[in-house]
Design a protein around this nucleic acid. Structure first.
Lengths: 146, 146
DNA sequence: CAGAATGGTTGCAGAAGGCAACCAGTCGGG
DNA sequence: CCCGACTGGTTGCCTTCTGCAACCATTCTG
């Protein structure tokens, strides 16, 4: 039980560093937190900001600023939601999609060269575990907040 | 490949929230980042600050401040390292150990009641995966930094 | 013994989130 | 129809946290 906190703590700090490096590969001024938002939008397709708020379980203001930052960098696009004049649909620009693909490709090269010991199967299994853990966190949080 | 960033991003933001709640159970003024340090020291026994810097792959100054904060709260103790007059050995106070145990026990109750779907086996497996991922991150980071 | 390296502390600046106030648009009941 | 409640977003303010750099004390090395 104890080691969970330990590993999670190490994970969070180390991941921040790795994500930071990866973010700069996409754009020199891209910050780690923004990179994670960008990746999510790239995967989910056009989404409302409110969907991101719910997904990340974070503050509206924080998401608003992050999206604003990504718009300035030209990595995200914003168009009015045809179904609701209050809302916007956020999507990834072609440029950003290309840069993200480049980063993935570069990482794939490391895998191919055997420099990193994580192959696709192990990675997929771990991602699935992460997903389940996210769900469990969500459920536990609902409990504690009531 | 894409989903890794997505899950990690969600994990990091959600974990911050959950850890925050857990930290307050240990001490009302305990911040999330400090809680993770505290957990690590509790597991590792007396350690030098420099060991924490290496473990978390973070800045000396950040660790120094976190430790200072935990000392003020009476959750950590600091004694001179008998082997090196520059260094200190950081350890957990009995009070902090008790509080941490209480938190673990409370979480165990949720597990026992079946409110959270993570039993010991699944958790242990996940922690092990996290550990491997941490190692891989470490290796990959060494590469990218060269 | 002098210079390099290590352990730690502190000041400073920037990133990031939480909270609250606010505006614009939507929706439901009278 | 329209008035109040609600939702989607933006912005200002404050706190937490980290990275960088300068610094001091101690230890190691040639």
């Amino acid at each position: 039980m104890r080691t969970l906190e330990h590993e999670v703590g190490v994970l969070m700090r180390r991941v921040r560093r790795v994500i930071g490096v990866r973010a700069q590969m996409v754009h020199p001024d891209l910050q780690p937190a923004s990179y994670l938002i960008l990746s999510s939008v790239a995967e989910s397709g056009p989404v409302r900001a409110s969907a991101l708020v719910e997904l990340f379980d974070t503050d509206k203001g924080a998401i608003s600023r992050q999206v604003g930052h990504l718009l300035e960098l030209g990595l995200l696009d914003k168009e009015p939601d045809p179904g609701d004049a209050r809302a916007w649909l956020i999507s990834v620009t072609p440029q950003a999609r290309q840069r993200l693909a480049d980063v993935v490709e570069q990482r794939q090269r490391l895998l191919d060269e055997g420099l990193v010991e994580w192959d696709d199967a192990k990675l997929a299994a771990f991602v699935e575990e992460l997903g389940r853990y996210n769900e469990a966190l969500n459920a536990a949080n609902d409990l504690s907040v009531q």
